Simulated assay, not measured.
Amino acid sequence: MAGVVPCSSSTLSPLTSLNFHYQEQCRALHAHSFILSTQRRGLYVCAAKKKVSFTDQILDYIEGGPKLRKWYGAPDLLPTDGSVTEDEDEFPEGDEIRDAVLVTDGDSEMGQMVILSLIVKRARVKALVKDKRAALEAFGTYVESLTGDSRDKPFLRKALRGVCTVICPNEGFLSTVGSLKGVKHVILLSQLSVYKGAGGIQALMKSNARKLAEQDESILVASGIPYTIIRAGMLQNSPGGTQGFSFEQGSAAKGTLSKEDAAFICVEAIDAVPREGFIFEVVSGDEKVSDWKVCLNRLLEKSEQQLQ
């Protein structure tokens, strides 16, 4: 794509093995932008001699700039310098529009995979990151990146402005954060079952992570906010979308799951909001899922029936 600035490989290293979940949407996007470019500039000829990789396509999509954003219909979340210009008092409390998804630990591997899936879903994305400049280089204005201490009440209030759903791709955030006032749904990707199933030296090495995971789950359950806890099997750096799934109780302790699939499921869970709480396990298995909305609503109904 013309005018694309190469991105930093270190910033986007978790995004170098993207799966089929995004391919059809990106093919449509690139076809749409090609048609528009021929209409506006005359015939635009791609002179590439080799097939463009899917990774290059998605990076082109992310870094396409304002013109591509306008074609694709995504909102301008940030000015080009990355600064936040929104007036702190633009929306009085109680009247603000809550349509954003906040991703915690947004510069982690899992955080970046979740963000990418949200971008493709055309969601309004906010992310807590340690390096705001690196996040801007990686995701451009598709993501409103915020740097600060989540334990600081003014910063947390700013981070949660306009947020409907919070996705926690790693343990530790809920154990340290204060009130999540105004949030309508919290999604937690939990490895607690994996930590509990570990033995020997692995159990010792994961003892702190297990403690944080236990605290996160207990705090979330007691928060009063509708929550979804996805207890995934051991996360692996394998391509997503290549296997089926299993949602059997007890499977997460010994099973595995692609990180790409885990990120995708976190994003799909946004549309399955429980009345109170929703906990399910997921690992790679034999069950093929063609419609995640139907699948998650089925699991949600089953979970609510068990609580009655």
Results as ranks from 00 to 15, higher is better:
287 E>H: 05
17 S>G: 14
286 D>W: 00
280 F>L: 10
7 C>M: 13
265 I>D: 04
187 I>V: 15
6 P>D: 08
35 I>Y: 09
173 F>H: 06
256 T>K: 12
249 Q>M: 13
286 D>I: 03
241 G>Y: 09
67 K>S: 07
189 L>T: 13
199 G>C: 08
271 D>I: 00
186 V>L: 03
295 C>Q: 15
160 L>C: 05
113 M>T: 03
255 G>E: 00
236 Q>G: 05
122 R>N: 14
273 V>D: 11
154 P>R: 07
209 A>G: 01
252 A>C: 14
41 R>K: 08
41 R>L: 04
12 L>C: 14
69 R>M: 14
8 S>P: 05
35 I>E: 04
135 A>Y: 03
90 E>M: 06
249 Q>L: 14
158 K>L: 12
292 W>A: 05
303 S>K: 15
266 C>E: 00
266 C>M: 02
261 D>V: 01
113 M>A: 01
204 L>M: 12
73 G>C: 04
112 Q>R: 13
257 L>Q: 01
248 E>Y: 07
153 K>H: 07
16 T>F: 12
94 G>H: 02
39 Q>L: 12
302 K>R: 13
65 G>V: 05
257 L>T: 05
289 V>Y: 06
67 K>Y: 06
194 V>S: 07
293 K>R: 13
26 C>L: 09
75 P>Q: 05
78 L>F: 09
81 D>I: 04
247 F>G: 14
132 K>S: 13
11 T>H: 14
184 K>I: 02
67 K>Q: 05
50 K>R: 10
